[in-house]
């Protein structure tokens, strides 16, 4: 069980959170012009590196905010946890 220090709610159990995947995956800027291999890589292929991993978590049973944290996938030590910046409003581009 991880103890995640939510920047808003304080230390909370992992069961209050939902894992949101790798935090460093970048969506191709123009999906309609992206070839299938690049798109498949974006959707499914992830690095599985040993060591520190940047990942997204949502505090679904708490403040409902999305968080970005760094977790060591070997020791499970969480070295940082911060609020995910809110997306800019507008046309999204």
């Amino acid at each position: 069980m991880l103890l995640i220090h939510c920047p808003h709610c304080g230390p909370r159990a992992q069961t209050e959170f939902s894992y949101g995947g790798d935090a460093n995956v970048a969506r191709p800027p123009a999906p309609e012009e992206t070839d299938d291999r690049t798109w498949t890589d974006y959707l499914y292929l992830r690095d599985n590196a040993k060591g520190s991993h940047a990942e997204l978590w949502q505090h679904i049973f708490g403040c409902r905010r999305w968080l970005r944290l760094h977790r060591d996938v070997v020791s499970h030590e969480i070295t940082s946890c911060s609020d995910l910046p809110r997306p800019r409003t507008g046309n999204g581009s």
Binding site: C9, R12, T15, E16, I60, F61, G62, C63
Partner: peptide, 10 residues
């Protein structure tokens, strides 16, 4: 006050 989960319920 605190929000959490109890028996799978928010």
């Amino acid at each position: 006050c605190a929000q959490s989960v109890l028996a799978s319920v928010a």
